[in-house]
Amino acid sequence: MNTTDLHTLTGAYAMDALPDTERTAFERHLAGCEACAQETAELTATTARLGLAVSVSPRPELRDEVLRRITTVRQETPREAGAATSVPRAAARRVILSRWALAACVAAAAAFGGVAVWQHQRAEDALDQARQAEQSAEGAAAVLAAPDARSGSAKLGDGATGTVVVSKRQDRAVFVVSGMAPPPKGKTYQLWFEEDGKMRSAGLMEPGRSKQTVLMSGAVGGASGMGVTVEPAGGSGQPTSAPVALMPLPA
């Protein structure tokens, strides 16, 4: 594939529609092509706007329905290989087996109770995560679709491009990134607002995703810029490493 062909792939890359080989080649091309990096950042932000603008919220009663159903689904116990199927004839054998069966039933009842509690908690956790993701997506969509939304784009290094979109009326910002290399093991990317020379945490990015749209945590306030650093999993109160990206917020 020649350079002319690579220049035509900005739209397909922004929509995540390239096969692995072409995506790898295009990301190498992005590192040295300012025009493609700029166009890719703008198209990625536009794609995020279009996608989030048509997102559909689940019906309000879905949570209660999931929690109700999860408690009625019984987990099958594993069957032991080679289990005997014949009925013992000796009365003593029946008594012993009956005692073992009773003990097994008691143990199974306790186990099923524990499984039900575990399943219920897992369902609650999943619903909380889904609810947070839904709220974040709705917030990002609102910023991206705001009439006063302003955006600025920049190259972040290693072929990555970033776009920050700000709505002054909503006092919120969204960060759209593509081509982001995964953070080191046990680390995460953390976003920051820069205000009067100080950094204020604006949330974490999802590890392992090269393309994502993130609603930055907290109000923009008087921030004039934003940054991205590599931090320990869970984030830090203040940056502990040099920024991998610094961008001014659009006026």
Rank of each mutant, 00 (worst) to 15 (best):
115 V>R: 11
124 E>V: 14
71 T>E: 14
85 T>A: 14
71 T>G: 05
113 G>T: 01
128 D>F: 06
123 A>H: 05
173 A>N: 12
77 T>Y: 03
167 S>I: 01
185 K>H: 13
183 P>S: 15
166 V>F: 06
157 G>V: 05
171 D>P: 04
84 A>Y: 04
186 G>Q: 12
148 D>V: 00
99 R>N: 07
120 H>G: 08
180 M>T: 12
156 L>W: 13
152 G>I: 11
105 C>Y: 05
145 A>L: 01
144 L>R: 07
83 A>M: 10
161 T>E: 12
98 S>R: 11
171 D>K: 05
166 V>T: 11
132 Q>Y: 06
123 A>W: 02
185 K>G: 12
150 R>Q: 15
154 A>C: 11
89 R>D: 08
160 A>E: 02
70 I>M: 09
133 A>E: 14
160 A>K: 08
122 R>F: 03
184 P>R: 13
121 Q>F: 09
110 A>I: 07
150 R>I: 03
76 E>C: 03
110 A>P: 00
133 A>W: 02
124 E>N: 06
147 P>C: 02
88 P>T: 05
168 K>V: 07
155 K>G: 13
161 T>N: 08
174 V>G: 08
102 L>K: 04
191 L>K: 05
161 T>D: 06
153 S>E: 04
79 R>M: 08
161 T>Q: 14
93 R>M: 08
181 A>M: 10
121 Q>M: 12
105 C>I: 03
162 G>P: 07
156 L>K: 01
159 G>T: 00
124 E>K: 09
104 A>R: 12
118 W>A: 14
85 T>E: 15
92 A>K: 05
130 A>W: 06
158 D>W: 02
157 G>P: 00
186 G>K: 10
162 G>F: 09
133 A>N: 11
89 R>C: 01
107 A>H: 02
118 W>H: 12
180 M>C: 11
83 A>G: 06
119 Q>H: 15
175 F>G: 04
158 D>C: 01
111 A>Q: 08
91 A>V: 10
80 E>P: 01
101 A>V: 04
160 A>S: 13
179 G>F: 08
81 A>V: 04
72 T>N: 08
115 V>H: 07
79 R>K: 12
145 A>N: 05
71 T>K: 13
181 A>H: 13
168 K>F: 02
114 G>W: 06
176 V>R: 04
123 A>Y: 01
74 R>Q: 11
94 R>Y: 00
153 S>V: 14
190 Q>K: 14
92 A>V: 07
158 D>M: 02
187 K>T: 14
115 V>E: 11
136 S>N: 09
144 L>A: 06
90 A>T: 02
159 G>V: 00
119 Q>L: 14
143 V>W: 08
162 G>I: 13
98 S>Y: 03
101 A>H: 13
126 A>Y: 07
86 S>L: 14
